[in-house]
Design a protein around this nucleic acid. Structure first.
Length: 312
DNA sequence: CGCCTTTGACCGGCGC
DNA sequence: GCGCCGGTCAAAGGCG
C-alpha cells in the first residue's frame, strides 16, 4: 500500500470550522469597540462579521456534506467488501467442487471399466444423490481474522473454545507457519481450526474453522482437572467468530482484551454495544484497504470539485 | 501423572 | 512413477 503510506488519509473535517469557532470570541471582542466615535471602523467590522458568519455557515454546510459523503462512502465500502468476500467465497467453493468433481470423475472412470456396466444410469443418479448428501455433510468453513500485538508470536486465537494443537506446518504461500488445532472441549467434537498469520499484515491472525461444535459454547473458562497450560480459552465475548454461517470472515482487534473482559463483559449492555462500535471503528480505520479506498474516493471528490471550480 | 506443545515422519491427493 | 504439498500422526520432552 504505497499509496496510503504516501498519503495521510486521516480526516479532520471539523478542523476548519472549529478554528473559526475558536476565533469567533476574538472577533466578538473586536466587534465591540471601546470608542463609539469610530463609526466607519464599526461598519467595516460589522461587514467583516457578516462575511465571517456567512463563511462559517458555508464551511458548516460543506462539513455536513463531507460527513454525509463519508457516511455514504463507508456504506459503499462495506457493501463492496461484502461483495468481494462473497465472490472469493464462491470461487473457493467452486474450486472445491471442481476438485471433487475431478476426483469423482476419475473414480467413475475406474468403476465404469469394471463391474457395474448395466446399472450405469442408476448409479449416476445415486452419484448425484451422494454428491448432494456430501454437500450437506461437508463441514461448514468459516474464517476469522484476529488482530494481535505485533510482538505476539503465538498462534493463539482466543475464541472461547478449548483447542489442542496437533500440528504445525510451513506452507508454500506463506512463510509464517500454520498451526492446526482440534476442539478438545468435547472429545467427540469434530471441529478443527487452522491458524496462520496474514501474509499482508503479520499482526493479523487468520483462523479457519472447519465443522460445527456439537457442544455448547464454553462462555466461561471451565475448571479443568489437569493443568490448563496452553489452553486457548478466550475471555473476549466474541459473537462474530461463531460458526453459524459458512465461510464467514470477521476481523477482530484483540490487542486490548482487558477492555473487553473487564468493563464490557455483559453483552447487550450499552457499554458493550459502545465497545463493539469502537472496535469496528478502530478496525476500519486500521484497515489499509479501507484507507486506500477512502483516500481514492476523497481525492476523486477533490479532483471533481477542482474541475468544477475551474469551470466556474 | 496427565496434558500440553513441538517437530520430524508419514500419508494421500494432485500435477507433470 | 516421481516429486510437491497440505494435513495428520505420534514420540519426545516440558510444565504444573
Amino acid at each position: 500500500m504505497e499509496f496510503t503510506s504516501l498519503l495521510n488519509t486521516s480526516l479532520d473535517l471539523n478542523a476548519k470550522p472549529q478554528r473559526i469557532l475558536d476565533e469567533a470570541p476574538l472577533l466578538r471582542k473586536q466587534e465591540v469597540p471601546s470608542d463609539f466615535i469610530e463609526l466607519g471602523r464599526n461598519i467595516t467590522v460589522k461587514e467583516e462579521r457578516g462575511a465571517l458568519i456567512e463563511e462559517l455557515n458555508r464551511v458548516n454546510a460543506e462539513n455536513k456534506k463531507l460527513t454525509e459523503l463519508l457516511t455514504v462512502m463507508c456504506e459503499n465500502y462495506n457493501e463492496l467488501r461484502h461483495r468481494v468476500m462473497n465472490i472469493s467465497k464462491n470461487s473457493v467453493v467452486d474450486n472445491d467442487a471442481s476438485r471433487k468433481r475431478k476426483a469423482e470423475s476419475s473414480n467413475n472412470n475406474g468403476n465404469t471399466g469394471g463391474t457395474n456396466g448395466p446399472s450405469e444410469s442408476s448409479s449416476s443418479d445415486e452419484d448425484s444423490c451422494k454428491k448432494q448428501r456430501e454437500e450437506h455433510i461437508k463441514p461448514k468453513i468459516s474464517r476469522a481474522c484476529v488482530r494481535t500485538e505485533a510482538s505476539d508470536t503465538s498462534l493463539i486465537v482466543k475464541d472461547g473454545y478449548l483447542w489442542r494443537k496437533y500440528g504445525q506446518k510451513v506452507t508454500r504461500d506463506n512463510p509464517c507457519p500454520r498451526a492446526y488445532f482440534k476442539c478438545s472441549f468435547a472429545p467427540s467434537c469434530p471441529v478443527k481450526k487452522k491458524v496462520q498469520r496474514s501474509i499482508e499484515d503479520q499482526s493479523i491472525l487468520v483462523a479457519t474453522y472447519e465443522g460445527e461444535h456439537n457442544h455448547p459454547h464454553p462462555s466461561k473458562p471451565e475448571p479443568t482437572s489437569g493443568s490448563s497450560r496452553g489452553v486457548t480459552l478466550g475471555t473476549v465475548p466474541c459473537p462474530t467468530t461463531s460458526l453459524s454461517s459458512s465461510a464467514q470472515t470477521v476481523t477482530l482487534d484483540v490487542t486490548k482484551p482487558k477492555l473487553a473482559t473487564d468493563s464490557n463483559r455483559k453483552m447487550g449492555t450499552p457499554q458493550y454495544q459502545q465497545y463493539l462500535v469502537e472496535q469496528m471503528a478502530s478496525t476500519l480505520t486500521k484497515d489499509p484497504n479501507f484507507k486506500s479506498a477512502l483516500a481514492a474516493a476523497i481525492s476523486g471528490q477533490f479532483l471533481q470539485q477542482n474541475t468544477r471550480a475551474e469551470k466556474w
